[in-house]
């Protein structure tokens, strides 16, 4: 008789007696399996989330002992703060553009690599996955060298092929620097959508393809009518991960531009840091943290419910 059935037979007993029984029999499981991890969660994650929400209603410089309650002042500030607006729209830009690269290039590449018409598909997948093992700090430094004005390799390449006209101050041009960072970010992350789509494609029943081929469908029609619909769940997962990933963005911006020039690459994750640690405004910084929490929570909870069901059943 398994434990699960043994426990299930006690369902009619009251919750309290069930708990008491559980305590007596399951000390190790209860203490080390449940209480300890939950306690660690509460101290390092749960309480900080709540305390951060509290901080968002206060004015605090992070150093002085006094934390002053100011109601919704910080939230009113958000609406009138051009710096926040700039960071918000930059984050939006980042999320949308990164997502289109992850989905567009990721899907196309995966389908090609899976089509059986490319040799060594696993090798190519490994190559594209490689940057993901690098930290974004080293990725940022590496591209800072490649893009540096004067002696950077990219400018030298462009000059070498007679395209001097295209040379820009890649990391100091208000109009283009954010796109440069987004592309580098997508470059470093593309391995993940690629692996996910690969798994999704491998799971598609090949009989579907065979049947469609018998009906005379072209490869294009196959991709559109068979592959894409079967990949829908994977596309959803990639979308959620990609959006959350973009929302958190900090490392690349911090290492490569510090949010500049003139706030052109300021994103929410970095603006929160600037407000808190450069301007010593922990209350307002916490408010931006709460905004990030709200955006991520919607995506995260939907996704995690699926993950949890999968892992537990």
């Amino acid at each position: 008789m398994t434990e699960a059935i043994g426990l299930r037979s006690q369902v009619r007993e009251t919750f309290l007696s069930k708990l008491a029984d559980f305590m007596a029999n399951r000390g190790f499981v209860l203490v080390f399996g449940i209480i300890l991890p939950v306690a660690v969660y509460v101290v390092f994650v749960g309480w900080p989330i709540l305390f951060n929400i509290y901080l968002s209603f206060t004015k605090w410089n992070g150093l002085a002992p006094d934390v002053v309650f100011v109601g919704i002042d910080n939230y009113i500030r958000l609406i009138n703060d051009p710096g926040f607006r700039q960071a918000f729209f930059n984050s939006l830009k980042w999320a949308l553009l990164a997502l289109s690269i992850h989905l567009g290039i990721g899907l196309t590449l995966s389908i090609l690599l899976h089509s059986g018409r490319v040799d060594f598909p696993a090798f190519f997948r490994s190559l594209i996955f490689l940057p993901f093992t690098m930290s974004l700090v080293t990725v940022g430094l590496m591209f800072s060298l490649i893009l540096s004005p004067g002696f950077g390799v990219l400018d030298a390449l462009l000059r070498g092929v007679g395209l001097e006209g295209l040379i820009r101050t890649w990391l100091g041009d208000y109009d283009i620097t954010i796109y440069v960072l987004i592309i580098i970010d997508a470059w470093a992350y593309l391995g993940i959508p690629l692996m996910m789509f690969h798994a999704g494609l491998s799971a598609i029943n090949t009989e579907l393809f065979d049947a469609a081929r018998v009906d005379g469908a072209s490869e294009w029609q196959l991709a559109w009518h068979v592959t894409l619909p079967s990949l829908k769940p994977v596309i959803l997962i990639v979308t959620m991960l990609s959006v959350i990933q973009s929302l958190k963005t900090f490392d690349l911006v911090s290492v490569m531009t510090g949010g500049g020039p003139a706030g052109g690459t300021s994103v929410l994750g970095h603006y929160m840091y600037v407000i808190s640690f450069r301007r010593n405004d922990f209350g307002y910084g916490a408010t931006i943290g709460v905004v990030m929490l709200l955006f991520s929570a919607g995506f995260a909870l939907t996704y995690l419910r699926g993950v949890a069901r999968n892992a537990l059943d």
Partner: peptide
């Protein structure tokens, strides 16, 4: 001035010089 003003001031001045504000 305190950092809370200095940082947005420096940002603003550079933004004016760059031409985005």
């Amino acid at each position: 001035v305190p950092d809370a003003l200095a940082d947005p001031f420096l940002d603003g001045l550079q933004s004016v010089l760059v031409g985005v504000m």
